[in-house]
């Protein structure tokens, strides 16, 4: 690909962090996913070329692992933990409420691209079940009735 694509400039610092080998593939894709909020096609082509991994194998890895998305994600990701503890403490009700409010279910992005809803396999905060994560903000003992507040308060500003 010789096309000058401004989108690719964000890829350079990511590639610079890892050795140009197949073993870096998943790490690079994690960072690409974070930087672009999905794995754009032309970025994957570039990753394949630079890490010397066949494109088919890059696509294979990109579709195998749950952390990666091939379509643009919403500005904020809402993750509903569906670990066992959350499941038996009512994660399903949170999903119902989100579907009601936002018109999008797990794996979907709202029409205005503000939110993407995902279910995650146990984030390990079981003691706080059910857990909802808006952006990077964890909401323990989440209640369907409070979802409006969680969404309006957003996901920023949470120190890790």
């Amino acid at each position: 690909m010789t096309l000058a694509c401004p989108e690719l400039t964000r890829l350079e610092p990511i590639l610079a962090r890892y050795p140009a080998r197949e073993e870096s593939l998943i790490q690079v894709l994690q960072d690409v996913q974070r930087a672009y909020r999905y794995l754009p096609c032309h970025v994957l082509e570039q990753v394949a070329a630079r890490l010397h991994v066949p494109l088919a194998r890059v696509f294979s890895v990109a579709t195998f692992y749950k952390a990666f998305a091939l379509t643009p994600q919403g500005e904020t990701t809402i993750q509903v933990c569906t670990g066992t503890a959350c499941h038996i403490r009512g994660a399903e009700r949170l999903i119902d409420e989100l579907r009601d409010r936002l018109g999008a279910g797990p794996g979907e992005t709202t029409a205005d691209r503000r939110f993407t809803i995902r279910t995650v396999n146990c984030v390990g905060a079981c003691a706080m079940a059910p857990v909802l994560i808006v952006g990077d903000r964890y909401r323990g003992n989440a209640k369907p009735a409070a979802i409006g507040d969680y969404l309006s308060e957003g996901g920023g500003g949470h120190a890790h």
Binding site: A56, R57, S60
Partner: peptide
């Protein structure tokens, strides 16, 4: 290596990248 497995579990399939004619 023009084709590979895509996705996993019950949705696993064999396909070229992006389900497009494989460049390699």
């Amino acid at each position: 290596s023009a084709i590979a497995s895509v996705s996993r579990g019950a949705s696993r399939a064999i396909a070229p990248p992006f389900n497009q004619p494989p460049p390699d």
